[in-house]
Amino acid sequence: MIPFDTLVVDDVSRHFGRRRALSRVSFHAGRGTILGLLGPNGAGKSTLLAVLATLLRPSSGTVRYGGHDATARGASLRAAIGVLGHDLFLYPELTARENLEFFAGLYAVRDVRAAAQEALDQAGLADRADDGVAGFSRGMRQRLALERALIHRPRLLLLDEPFTGLDDASAAALGRRLLTLREGGAIVVLATHDLDIAERLLDRAIVLREGRLVETVDRPEALRSVYRSIMSRPDAASGFSRTDGA
């Protein structure tokens, strides 16, 4: 594992054919930061998360993890990154414990059993540990999926809309968990379009629209007014990006 404390995204673009999903995005984040990616659907949040997770190569530009380039060190970098995707990455046929132990094994965690037990306690699922995930509620799955993403204690955590479909209690619990991770010095990158959550949790936010970074917000309390004004702006470029034939 390569330990790193900074994430630097420098002029990253990614296109699919003639559709530009990301256009010259630059930002950085240091240790103990919760950084928000805000924007409407199709703004490029998921593409950006996939690039940060080393799953997608940028068409141009670089991502550096504490001085290491993503393309140079695929596997050892991935050992320090945790990802919670929109689809949760869980096998519904397996039990909670089996899911955790399988991924702990893939990430070469030293004591697989202890790590899985700790994750189950953390998720509040110790009493349901040996039940199939197929029978879990959305909230339980979400908590399990988060602990699965954290099982190897990553330095960088990437979350794609983690609050979708959660009730207030689960959302609050998830928020508290993210704040603990921040205390521990992790970098958390969180894609969301929920402004209430964003205001409470984020240290900084970047606002994406049509693949471009349109605003960086350093004060969470200013977020709401900034976001509103950006979303009400007419967009001149949309005429071109809608014409793709793909």
Partner: peptide, 11 residues
């Protein structure tokens, strides 16, 4: 080249 042109107009 056409794709590249579309992309450059977009940027």
């Amino acid at each position: 080249a056409l794709d590249a042109l579309y992309l450059s107009m977009d940027a």
